[in-house]
Structure formats: structure tokens, C-alpha cells
């Protein structure tokens, strides 16, 4: 064993200290830089204003249908710049009948492959026979104010837009699935590249809609329109391999349409709107005292509210 003075010469000691110090400072600097709030890279301002014609001139009426009202308020919200809107969803659990129309509507709208789901409806049975009751809990992405999924992404592929919607850039995502682990709601699923028809109808005669030798049926190759782009899963194209989640149907909002889960809800249990509009239906609903959020103890501040 060497004496302490023999371990390193003065020059070597200074060099070692300098290298470690420089490394620590550089590491601290990049972490602080990325931790600091930076201006959004999403387009903002006047170019995000949408003058939607649908229902624009329709005056509010007494006892009007909830959907007509939300549609009207959507057009009003879209006429503001994106940073002035704040989308939220409200689900009235007392009205939900567990029909799963929202789940299926979402699968159809976003052309979700097997194993990818944005809005499952959780069913729970309570009580003992004959006093039993079924409870239903639709679970979209919560679009949290303080999302735990965003900071863990190693490539800045997921972020919170100025209107509060947490989005994923399918062209950036590397499919590490860190965000899947970070979401306490299980709202993110990975697209493992499966198709519904790959292993179906083996040996059946070939035809227009008939898959051949394990290949998916042609309709599975149709592109989805998430985030207003055309995504084709053919030949391992994105979003295959990516994390996927509910995005409040941004592509529909841009065209003045409510999210598909809202329009397909047969019990009128799902509400959607701009929480910055104090006269909106969603603000009216969330200011009641029977509103809850899921897993509030994590301080994610979900923007999906449940009326119980």
C-alpha cells in the first residue's frame, strides 16, 4: 500500500480535481437548462385561431342539447389563440352506463391496433347479492397540469401544449417506455406493431379484404389522422414502436368537432370544453362540490374530472 503522498503528484491531483469539477459543473448546467421552463415550440398567437363556421351564429337556447352547447363553445374556444384555451374533460359517473361506446369510438377514430387503448371503461362491482351495484369509470389520459410522464422522456418526444393537451411526437419517440412506467393512470400504451388480422384466416382464399400468409388485411394499413397528420403503420412506420395515448382528438378539435368519446357517449356522460371560458358547461360542472380527480395524492393535477 502506498503512502498518501505517493498516490498522486500535485499536478495530477489538480488535473483530477479540474476534470471532476468541470464534469460536475457541465452536468449541473445541462440539467438546470433543461429544467428551466422554456417557451413552447408549438405555434401560438393569431395563426392558431380557427374561424369555424359550424354553429357559429347559433344563439344559446333554453334547455338546448348538451352536445349542441359544447359544440358551440368549442367553436368559440377555437376562435381564440391556442394559449388562451385550456381543455378539460368532465365525466359524470352517475350517467355512465358502461356501454363502452367511447372505447370503441376511440379505437375506430384513431385506428388503434390490438393492445393499444386510449379510453378503457373500468367496471367495478360493489355490495353483496341482492344489494349489488355496478360502477363504471372511463379512463382517458388525464392531461395533467403537472404530468409525471413528460420529464422522464429522454428525447423530448412528449410535452404539454399551451392548451394543456399532453402530446407525443411519433417521429421523435424511441419507444423506451419510460413514460408508460411514469403514468400512474396507465394511460399510455405501447404500439407493439400487431394487427388484428395478421394470423387470421390462414389458408383461406385470397381476396380484396382477405389477408394472405399472415399479412394484415389491407384495411389495417389505412392511415390514422392523429395530431392532424397522416400516420401509416405499414412497414414498421410510426406509431409502431411508439408510446401512444389519448390526445383529446386534437385533429377533430381543429375542425370544430368534439372528441369522439364525447359524441359517441350514449348517456351524455362525457363533457369537454375550455376551462378558461367561465360561461362554459365544463366550468359550470367542475365548480360543483361533487367533483373528484383520480389519484390526487401524486400531485399530477389531472385535468379530467369525475362527477360522483
Amino acid at each position: 500500500m502506498k503512502k498518501v503522498s505517493e498516490i498522486m503528484e500535485r499536478r495530477e491531483f489538480i488535473l483530477a480535481g479540474g476534470l471532476i469539477g468541470a464534469g460536475a459543473v457541465a452536468a449541473g448546467a445541462v440539467i438546470v437548462k433543461d429544467r428551466m421552463a422554456t417557451p413552447s415550440k408549438d405555434p401560438t398567437g393569431e395563426k392558431t385561431v380557427r374561424n369555424l363556421m359550424a354553429l357559429k351564429d347559433l344563439k344559446p337556447q333554453h334547455n338546448e342539447d348538451d352536445h349542441i352547447r359544447m359544440q358551440r363553445e368549442l367553436a368559440t374556444a377555437m376562435s381564440k389563440p391556442v394559449e388562451k384555451r385550456r381543455w378539460i374533460m368532465v365525466i359524470d359517473l352517475r350517467k355512465c352506463v358502461g356501454c363502452q361506446a367511447c372505447t370503441i369510438g376511440c379505437v375506430a377514430e384513431n385506428k388503434l391496433p390490438p393492445g393499444v387503448v386510449y379510453r378503457p371503461v373500468i367496471q367495478r362491482e360493489t355490495g353483496e347479492f341482492p344489494n349489488v351495484q355496478l360502477h363504471f369509470l372511463p379512463r382517458p389520459c388525464m392531461h395533467c397540469e403537472n404530468p409525471s410522464c413528460v420529464p422522464v422522456c429522454p428525447v423530448k418526444a412528449t410535452w404539454k401544449r399551451p392548451d394543456g393537451v399532453v402530446v407525443i411526437d411519433y417521429d421523435k419517440c424511441i419507444g423506451c417506455r419510460y413514460c408508460l412506467n411514469a403514468c400512474p393512470y396507465g394511460a399510455r400504451t405501447s404500439d407493439f406493431g400487431r394487427n388484428y388480422t395478421s394470423n387470421e384466416a390462414q389458408g383461406a382464399p385470397e381476396g380484396k379484404d382477405r389477408p394472405i400468409s399472415g399479412a394484415p388485411a389491407p384495411w389495417e394499413g389505412l392511415p390514422s389522422n392523429e395530431y392532424g397528420k397522416s400516420w401509416n403503420r405499414k412497414d414498421h412506420g410510426s406509431p409502431v414502436g411508439n408510446a401512444r395515448k389519448c390526445h383529446f382528438c386534437l385533429h377533430r378539435l381543429e375542425n370544430g368537432l368534439l372528441p369522439i368519446c364525447v359524441t359517441t357517449c350514449i348517456g351524455r356522460a362525457t363533457y369537454f370544453g375550455d376551462s378558461n371560458d367561465q360561461d362554459s358547461m365544463v366550468v359550470e360542472l367542475v365548480t360543483r362540490n361533487n367533483v373528484q380527480t383520480l389519484l390526487p395524492h401524486w400531485d399530477n393535477k389531472p385535468k379530467c374530472y369525475y362527477i360522483v
Binding site: I31, D34, P151, C153, P154, V155, K156, K172, C176, Y178
Partner: peptide
């Protein structure tokens, strides 16, 4: 992960 890193992520 090397070219476009986000250092808020431990990965």
C-alpha cells in the same frame, strides 16, 4: 438519446 437528449430524464 445522444443527439436530442432531455436532461430532465435520468435515462
Amino acid at each position: 438519446i445522444i443527439v436530442h437528449p432531455s436532461f430532465t430524464s435520468m435515462m
